[in-house]
């Protein structure tokens, strides 16, 4: 008979062996020459630079930045409304959150880009305006629940101590509770930021100009121009080059904070 430890070891070795076998099978079956021809053509790859960075990646970052900043503002207001003693505020925020979390981001983008101008004769100004606003509205709905959870995670005594020192409710929220809430929600916030970064790829439905083209659309256009998949690989690498340092930076920030506070 095997002990449970030996059994565990056996299972682990079996998993290693299966994985290795699959990898070997994939590596030997793959037609590497064909793959390289269609997806790793160095000439096409390098022809994309620096345009892919100076235009496409730049626009992706701009949309992300505007969308996230706007989303934070909307999310914070909604979170405070959800926690308000005034019932209509709570209802309004709950409806907003349900609607824009429930709709696919693509639909919201179309709403802001096309339906709003027709219905209300209002066109969101600015080159980046409509896209950024649509992303902010969607992100705001997600961030609202995250921020609310963060605020609720701050012990009640913090608000009480601040109020006992004569701070108004708003002042106590702004100076004491919300700064602590953001420490708590830093990891989910990064998550939202990365999701938003990738959602910028949906903005193509608004129709892109040379000015507003973002990474994903840029890649697909390049694929259409070259009849080759290499641009998609280039775009994928650029996305990773943005998200990886970002998540590392936040992980570092988190560690540093843990050392400073509690």
């Amino acid at each position: 008979m095997l002990t449970s430890r030996q059994r565990g070891q056996l299972v682990r070795y079996a998993i290693y062996a299966t994985t290795l076998a699959l990898l070997v099978w994939a590596a030997t079956t793959t037609d590497w020459a064909k793959l390289q021809e269609h997806f790793f053509d160095p000439k096409i790859f390098w022809s994309l630079f620096p345009d892919i960075l100076t235009r496409a990646a730049r626009n992706t970052l701009i949309f992300t930045l505007f969308g996230f900043t706007g989303g934070l503002a909307i999310g914070l207001v909604l979170a405070l409304m959800r926690l308000s003693p005034v019932a209509p505020y709570r209802w309004a925020a709950a409806i907003y959150i349900e609607v824009f979390r429930g709709l696919p981001a693509l639909i919201t983008i179309v709403l802001i880009g096309f339906v709003l101008p027709i219905a209300l004769q209002v066109r969101v100004p600015g080159t980046y305006g409509p896209g950024s606003l649509a992303l902010a509205i969607v992100t705001g709905a997600y961030l609202a629940e995250t921020i609310r959870a963060g605020i609720e995670a701050v012990p009640k005594g913090q608000m009480e101590a601040a109020r006992s020192l004569g701070m108004s409710h708003a002042r106590a929220m702004g100076s004491i509770v919300i700064p602590q809430a953001f420490r708590v929600i830093l990891p989910p916030l990064t998550n939202e930021l990365v999701l938003l970064l990738k959602d910028t790829s949906l903005l193509f439905v608004l129709g892109t100009t040379d000015q507003t083209i973002e990474l994903a659309k840029y890649g697909r256009d390049a694929v259409a121009d070259t009849f080759n998949g290499t641009p998609l690989v280039a775009v994928a690498l650029v996305y990773l080059a943005i998200t990886f340092p970002l998540t590392r930076a936040v992980a570092w920030l988190e560690r540093r904070q843990k050392r400073a506070v509690r």
Partner: peptide, 20 residues
């Protein structure tokens, strides 16, 4: 109330210092 509270110091069982 906020003005009155500045006249009344309060100390809590759980200290409630601001950790940040």
């Amino acid at each position: 109330l906020d003005r009155v509270r500045t006249k009344i110091g309060m100390v809590f069982q759980q200290f409630n210092l601001f950790p940040h």
